[in-house]
């Protein structure tokens, strides 16, 4: 395969993967913010259905990963770019906790937030803009955050 053909194939896979992902979110209920909040509401009328979203996704992807990792490289790129770190650190857990608070407040995580842009509602747009600002700001503050967390 020529590098050019590879790049086209890689782009096509990304596009298709995005379409299937968004359909999966919509079918499963992840694009309904109050349903997500209902899942996080463990103490009053918990709605367990979103557990099955993760269950279904992990069941498929865990099997696929076992098959995929036997191969020397992915079909359309040079190597697998998969995180290999296994240690826990403060940064990971603090970041996850901050994300969780935001998720609980709005009922949106990044994927459903992005897919919900198609509704054209002001809240969906505002969420996405704020998320990008937060992500960009945190990346600019990266050195400071790393220094601060090394002391913990």
């Amino acid at each position: 395969m020529t590098p050019r053909a590879r790049a086209w194939a890689e782009g096509g896979v990304a596009l298709l993967s995005g379409v299937i992902f968004a359909l999966g979110l919509a079918v499963s209920g992840m694009t309904r913010a109050e349903k997500v909040v209902g899942f996080l509401n463990f103490f009053r009328g918990w709605d367990p259905s979103l557990m099955f979203v993760m269950g279904g996704a992990i069941a498929v992807h865990a099997v696929a990963w076992r098959l995929i990792k036997r191969r020397p490289s992915p079909l359309f790129s040079a190597r697998f770019l998969v995180p290999t770190r296994r240690d826990l650190d403060a940064r990971l857990l603090i970041g996850a906790a901050i994300f969780g608070v935001g998720w609980g407040l709005g009922g949106f995580c990044p994927g459903p937030g992005l897919a919900s842009l198609v509704t054209g509602t002001p809240t969906a747009l505002a969420f996405m803009v704020a998320m990008l600002v937060g992500s960009f700001g945190a990346s600019k503050a990266e050195p400071a955050i790393t220094r601060a967390l090394q002391r913990t």
Partner: peptide, 10 residues
């Protein structure tokens, strides 16, 4: 919520 999700996931 958006700000926290952006910062936290980064």
């Amino acid at each position: 919520a958006g700000l926290l999700v952006g910062v936290g996931t980064r």
